[in-house]
């Protein structure tokens, strides 16, 4: 049952992610990105992380997609302009980073398969305490610093957005 759903969500996520980068029209790409986000939320549900799944839908599929769409309308991308391929430096740098990411993913999967399937909070324990209770209990005690750092990050985001968007553009609506 879980395996079937896993494959459904995994295939949807991968196919929509590939379609997102191959589509020429950025609005269609955004729609496929939403589909990817929803499949990831489904994955979180399967991993018994209900809170993360709902937050994924609310924040990513809701708020961040609105932001992306506004930026698209702001840039007014009519036709995709294809840059010439001959950019050896960018291609090399991109390949190196992609390789590093691949190695990291490989090690994470390897550790996950060998050391333990679940961490300090296996599904039985989470279900006994409650998904949100576990997150709250950990976040506001052991992970207090990242939590407060997040507020500074949000503050920087607010100030940055206002400074960047302060100027009035010519020929805007």
């Amino acid at each position: 049952m879980v395996t079937i759903f896993f494959f459904i969500f995994a295939v949807t996520a991968l196919v929509s992610a590939v379609l997102m980068i191959t589509y020429k029209n950025p609005v269609y790409s955004a729609l496929f990105l939403i589909l990817t986000f929803f499949s990831l939320a489904g994955m979180y549900f399967l991993l018994e992380a209900q809170f993360i799944a709902i937050v994924q839908i609310i924040v990513y599929a809701g708020a961040i997609m609105v932001l992306f769409l506004f930026v698209m309308m702001l840039l007014n991308l009519r036709q995709e302009t294809r840059l010439p391929i001959g950019r050896p430096f960018q291609v090399a740098l991109g390949s190196i980073f992609a390789l590093i990411l691949l190695i990291q993913l490989f090690f994470i999967v390897k550790v996950g398969l060998t050391v333990s399937k679940f961490g300090a909070f296996p599904p039985e324990k989470i279900n006994k305490i409650g998904s949100v209770q576990v997150i709250g209990g950990e976040l506001f005690t052991n992970y207090l610093f990242p939590f407060e750092a997040a507020s500074i990050l949000l503050l920087v985001g607010i100030i940055g957005a206002i400074i960047l968007g302060r100027k009035k553009l010519p020929n805007e609506m």
Binding site: F51, V55, I58, V59, G62, A63, I64, V66, L67, F70, V71, M73, L74, N76, G130, V132, Q133, I135, G136, G137, L139, F140, F147, A150, S151, L154, G157, I158, A161, I162, L164, G165, K167, K168, L169, N171, E172, M173
Partner: peptide, 30 residues
């Protein structure tokens, strides 16, 4: 047509305060 940059500021502020509220929820529970 080209949208005003004000939409970007509104959307960005919405995202940031949305995330703030997301943090409230586990806090209220525990």
């Amino acid at each position: 047509t080209r949208f005003s940059i004000r939409f970007y500021i509104i959307a960005m502020l919405f995202v940031l305060f949305d995330i703030e509220v997301v943090f409230f929820y586990p806090w209220a529970v525990v």
